[in-house]
Simulated scan of single mutants.
Amino acid sequence: MRKSITLVIAFVFFLCGALQAYAQTFSWHDPMLETSSVINGRAWEGEIGSSYARLPERFQQRVPLKVWNLSRNAAGLSVKFSTNTRNLQIKYTIADAPQLPNMSKLNQAGIDLYATNASGHTHWIGNHMQWNWGDTITFTFRNLEVKNGVYELILPPYSTVTSLKVGCDEGASFRFMPSRKDKPVVVYGSSIVQGASPSRPGLIWTNILKRLTGYNIVNLGFSGSCLMEPALFDAISEIDAKCFIIDPIPNSYRLTDKEITERIRYGVLSIRKKSKAPIIVSESYPQADIVFNPRAEERMRTANKALQAAVNQLQKEGVAGLYYQFSKDIPFTEDAMIEASHPNDIGCVAYAKAYEKMLKTIFRK
Rank of each mutant, 00 (worst) to 15 (best):
T25Y: 00
F26A: 03
S27C: 01
H29F: 10
D30L: 06
L33H: 11
T35V: 09
S37D: 11
S37R: 05
V38W: 06
V38K: 09
V38H: 10
V38M: 10
I39H: 08
N40P: 05
R42I: 15
A43T: 07
E45F: 01
E45S: 07
G46H: 09
E47R: 04
E47M: 04
G49L: 10
G49V: 10
S51E: 14
Y52I: 05
Y52G: 05
A53F: 07
R54Q: 12
R54L: 09
L55H: 10
P56Y: 11
P56F: 09
Q60L: 11
Q60E: 15
Q61N: 15
W68D: 07
N69S: 06
L70R: 13
L70V: 08
S71T: 10
R72Y: 09
R72G: 05
N73E: 12
N73I: 01
A74T: 08
A75D: 07
G76F: 09
S78G: 13
S78N: 08
V79F: 06
K80A: 14
K80I: 04
S82A: 11
S82V: 14
S82D: 10
T83V: 06
T83D: 08
N84E: 06
N87F: 00
N87P: 01
L88Q: 02
L88N: 03
I90Y: 01
K91P: 00
Y92E: 00
Y92Q: 00
Y92H: 00
T93Q: 13
I94D: 00
A97H: 11
A97T: 06
P98S: 11
Q99G: 10
Q99W: 13
L100V: 04
N102Y: 15
N102T: 11
M103E: 04
S104P: 02
S104N: 04
K105T: 08
K105S: 08
N107S: 04
N107H: 03
N107D: 12
N107T: 05
G110W: 01
D112E: 13
A115I: 14
T116H: 13
N117V: 10
N117S: 13
A118L: 12
S119W: 08
S119G: 06
G120V: 12
H121A: 12
H121W: 08
T122V: 13
H123R: 14
W124L: 12
